[in-house]
Amino acid sequence: MLVFRLLMILVGLVAGYAAGRALNMSGPNSEMFLVNTVSLMLAGALLAFLVTPRLEPLLSRSFSGVRRWYSSLAPRTVAAATFGLIVALLLSVLVSNLLASLPIYSWPISILVTLVLAWFFVNYSVQHADAFGLLASQQVRRKKGSKVLDTNVIIDGRVVELAKAGFLEGELLIPSFVLRELQLLADHSDAQRRTRGKRGLAVLEELQELRPLRIDDWDEPGLDKVDDKLIRFARETGGKIVSNDNALSRIAKLQGVEVLSIHEAAVALKPQVQAGDYLTITVSKGGQQQGQGVGYLEDGTMVVVEDGLKFRGKPLRVLVVNNVQTNVGRMIFAKPDQAA
């Protein structure tokens, strides 16, 4: 903010000089003109010095908003908009020269023509940003069909089975910051984290034997969280994120990034249990309400049995009453089979 304060003081000096010139009555070479101008310049600089600290918070918020907006733009979008603006400026020069011979022509018409051409060509270029991918840097060109793997899905390991089954088409991308996170976990002092990191590296080695795997040397130092970097990387490369993190999936989808959620796929492939079906479970503990019993299916689905606590530890045939999908998984509500 020091640069901003110095700039504002310079603006105060210039404003004071301009005010001195405007109020001068005795000629620019008179001593009175010099004294008045210096006084007004000092007054402008001091006023800027007093006002600037009060303007800094407002301007800081405004600049932060603009910076976040600009950072959210994909490089190919910026490249496309810049190309469209260049074309608009070149055409405006040609059109202005053609219109200059008309008697009604004036400089406001030239500005209006430039603005109309800029609006049209910038919008058209942004809407067809994919066609301008070669204008962006080589590092962030769109890779159609590529899949970006996050840290959690690598450690999970099920991505290997998906690759074997042929469900992951296109190039598999591993950003360099994801690989560094796995390396940090593998070298961590905590045994559990160290095990997770080593498992992730082993999964990558197994994937490399099955499919082409590319480590992309991309990073964004301005972003602290790995999830934010992952979303930015996927947006800039045009790839789809493969993840089992529900929070990451929601944030990415809100920002227009496609996500292939292994968790959602696993839930969708679970066998559906309908009301009226019969199940045999073992009640293992009590529920939240009095007399309720809780058991689990082989896939881990929770079954809440009405008045089932008295059958704890015994196989019990139950009638499914309701089947509910929640954020944490599927829950089945049942009651003991009276016939049994």
Results as ranks from 00 to 15, higher is better:
R76T: 14
R199D: 00
L279H: 09
R211D: 01
V87P: 01
L6H: 07
P175T: 07
G16I: 04
F132G: 10
L213F: 03
L98S: 12
Y70M: 14
F4P: 02
G166S: 08
L135W: 07
L309M: 13
G238D: 08
Q325C: 08
N123M: 12
F333A: 09
R54Q: 10
L297C: 11
G44C: 04
M32C: 00
V226G: 09
H263S: 15
L185F: 01
G256N: 06
A275G: 11
R180Y: 07
Y296D: 03
M25V: 13
A19P: 03
A186D: 05
L55G: 11
I281H: 05
W119K: 13
V87N: 02
G27H: 01
V78K: 14
L40Q: 05
L98E: 13
P103K: 04
Q290T: 14
G286R: 06
R235W: 00
A19C: 08
G65E: 04
N246I: 09
L23Y: 10
G166C: 11
Y278N: 11
I215Y: 05
V259T: 09
T282P: 01
R211N: 07
V257P: 05
F311S: 08
A165R: 15
N123D: 14
M25K: 15
A275W: 00
S146I: 00
T195D: 12
